[in-house]
């Protein structure tokens, strides 16, 4: 893979580091699919403008880390760093949902059979014309 360290990419890094005040790692363990909801707290003073944008988006609708990054047009890592600040300030919270995993303690586990059946039923209700091709075996 050849280096793509061109000027455009360099300036993206500069913008990102400015945004996160030089930090390169989020304080909280956040997945690409971690969902965030607005919380009761207020962000501390001197936060990046993007923090207000994140809060406004999450007040409208719960949003995943990926969705926030996509809407802000910022790299995921930078958004995770800002989201960590907002979690610390209680301005964002991670809503508890029914665990999708077969075992609630194992984050790597796959969704339970019950969840898969619910997903199937939900998709069929939404798209009655959709056909599943079932494989023998």
């Amino acid at each position: 893979m050849s280096a793509r360290g061109d000027a455009a990419e360099d300036s993206t890094f500069v913008r990102t580091y400015t945004l996160t005040r030089g930090r390169t790692r989020p304080r909280h363990l956040l997945g690409l699919d971690t969902v965030l909801d607005a919380g009761p707290g207020r962000p501390g003073p001197g936060q990046a403008e993007e923090c207000e944008e994140i809060l406004a988006l999450c007040r409208e609708h719960r949003r995943s880390v990926t969705e926030l990054a996509g809407r802000l047009g910022r790299p995921v890592t930078a958004v995770k760093i800002l989201v960590s600040d907002l979690l610390d300030a209680d301005a964002l919270v991670v809503p508890v949902t029914a665990p999708y995993a077969a075992s609630g303690t194992d984050a790597d586990a796959r969704p339970s059979l019950q969840m898969l059946a619910a997903l199937s039923a939900g998709l069929k209700r939404k798209w009655p014309d959709a056909i599943a091709y079932l494989q023998a075996g």
Binding site: R25, P26, R27, H28, L29, L30, D33, T34, V35, D37, G39, R62, S64, L87, V93, V94, P95, V96, T97, A98, P99, Y100, P111, M115, L119
Partner: peptide
């Protein structure tokens, strides 16, 4: 420093994410 899972809040009507 990121060793602890982010604390989360109960939110009864939140749909399960797949």
């Amino acid at each position: 420093a990121a060793a602890l899972r982010t604390p989360s809040r109960p939110h009864s009507d939140a749909p399960t994410v797949l």
